[in-house]
Design a protein around this nucleic acid. Structure first.
Lengths: 204, 204
DNA sequence: ACCTGAACACCGTTCAAGT
DNA sequence: ACCTGAACACCGTTCAAGT
């Protein structure tokens, strides 16, 4: 066929198609991606280096969409509310692509969009007069909890397949619980409230 | 060669060898696993169903070792100390095999050892008089933070490759911080203290 | 029951060939 | 510059054949 007059592919198109595949099937393959893009597998290599770069691209697309939503710009409000909103927004963004998270964890963050998201959080603490040490710890604590909670979104409500005989306390708790909403969401709010209340003691 | 008088393999041996490979290289392949066990790839299928079962086996080995360490039996102490010890112990167990975590997340927990570990935590809250709802939330919150923090152990200290120009607050905080220990460990303790203090308000 | 070697479909990546 | 088809090494899994 040869070169088309107008390029069919772009890194962005490749990343978005890969994101779609992961959302749908929990993973992607280069041949599957090529098929989705109506292209030959080898064509993809004219735009990205390889599979790892595509995975990184998925992260950046999620981050860019989250930034574009404007959720991270809740200026004016109390810093506690803004920190909580940050965690809530990024967890929602990741949770919308919960099947991607296992693919993303364990890879270093280098894309601009994701770093920008964390810059928002760090700036918030700096503004509040946190020391460098406290900013690092505050960002880490909130990020760790946010990420652990986002991972939990992917897990089915019955991911805890406890046995009534072998794990009586665990089984009974889940069997008898009557939560007023999704377990993961409610727990997230409890944890965020706990963490932010504690961070407040650093600033006082 | 045919069947040996004494079986060379067992599920346990396969799981442990796979764990070793992941610790060393961050992943494992069936051919690589077979080589490590001085066996043919097809031999492995006489003992386990396939790769997913091996991944589940890795989790159960980590859980069994953690249970065997006795860290989860800190009876007598205050429930707050025991809950903190639980999170600390399991994070340490997972952190010792940090490269495994990306492989484990996103898979439902079904192995006995891991469920036993969560049973310890649930029983602790039940003992304390938590309602079923509160047990579920307390277990979820502590688990989510513990897992997020364990993932952070795998990340290099410089996983946040912030740019001085583009992300000034984030960059400056990490550049100027002088923490009295590993960022991940210190942050974990701060978060656990925050969460447990908050859980204490449920029981009061 | 348990190990082997051959075989299959599939995957990620490379590269020469085309426009 | 950008797409294609052929090719390569490799992977997970199956299966008939051996003891």
């Amino acid at each position: 066929m040869g070169r088309p007059r107008q390029a069919i592919l772009s890194p962005e198109k490749i990343y978005r198609a890969a994101l779609d595949l992961v959302d749908e099937f929990g993973d992607f393959t280069l041949p599957g991606l090529a098929k989705r893009l109506s292209v030959s597998p080898s064509s993809i290599y004219h735009h990205v280096q390889g599979r790892p770069e595509i995975i990184n691209g998925i992260r950046s697309v999620i981050g860019a969409d989250a930034l574009a939503s404007g959720d991270f710009f809740t200026a004016g409000a109390d810093w506690r509310d803004r920190a909580a909103a940050w965690a809530r927004s990024y967890r929602r963004a990741l949770g919308q692509h919960a099947k991607c998270i296992p693919l993303l964890v364990g890879e270093a963050v280098t894309d601009h969009a994701t770093l920008e998201i964390y810059e928002h959080l760090a700036a918030l603490f700096v503004e509040q007069g946190f020391s460098a040490n406290d900013v690092v710890v505050a960002v880490t604590v909130l990020d760790n909890f946010m990420l652990g909670s986002a991972l939990d979104v992917a897990a089915p409500e019955s991911a805890w397949l406890a046995d009534a005989e072998a794990q009586p306390a665990l089984h009974a708790a889940f069997a008898d619980a009557s939560l007023a909403g999704p377990r993961s969401d409610l727990s997230f709010e409890v944890g965020v409230a706990a963490i932010i209340a504690h961070l407040g003691t650093l600033v006082a």
